[in-house]
Amino acid sequence: MSTAQSLHQSRKRKNGVMMTLCVVAAGIGLAWLALILGALLYKGLSGVSLSVFTEMTPPPGDAGGLLNAIYGSIVMTIIGIFVGTPIGVLAGTYMAEYGRFSKLTTVVRFINDILLSAPSIIIGLFVYELMVRPMGHFSAIAGAVALSILVIPVVVRTTEDMLNLVPNALREAGTAIGAPRWVVIRSVAYRAALSGIVTGILLAIARISGETAPLLFTALNNQFWSSNLNAPMASLPVTIFQFALSPYEEWQQLAWTGALIITLTVLGLSIIARSLTGRREDR
């Protein structure tokens, strides 16, 4: 009896220890988020002022803003999204609708998942070999292409997943009244999966708006205002990279402020994206 009781006690104790460790692990995970956000707010907020959004990046040792970098980021993100989204949505459509059971879909899904987590610096090298080397110079358009290559796998993945969730009965109802397949896809499947597809696009924007590595040797950087897509263009992440590693205090402050802007943008986008699909996950 006493051995049974002591066994019970030791099992209970072991359980208590392990479960406490799990709670501690969760605490650690949340603590990092709080620490990083806290440091960003503390160091970044003090540099936020109107001039950040109205002035160009300064030469070393001068005050200035991030206007050209913010502009460059927005331009390249928009082009990247506009190039990558249609391709991603169409590919996802093929995988979920026309070719749901074809061999091609299986292969594409596998390769797409690998592209999804492939190191973004590799994409940068690819676009360098593809565009920068033949053109002979760095350009904003090359940066935008690199970003669009990062957009495609995210959009493909979410589009396929969301279209697969659309009940087949809806499609059959469409076909039964004589609508051809592409009309069924356009007016039934897309409509039913719209919030999910939009979520995918938002997540893709969130991902590329903070990407640095693929821009380093495609769009490079630019100290001055430039709206020429065929010339190097500044972007927020590359500017942060350059300024944070510099010895000048004004530059480091701008880097923190830029980091805060990016983080708030990305977190905002992911929270909106999540709230769009939130109800579906709860089911």
Binding site: G210, A244, V266, I271
Partner: peptide, 17 residues
């Protein structure tokens, strides 16, 4: 969600931090 937000923070932010 909070843990997944950690995944969304761009790597350059981790770098500067």
């Amino acid at each position: 969600i909070a843990v997944e937000l950690l995944a969304g923070i761009p790597s350059i932010i981790y770098g500067i931090w």
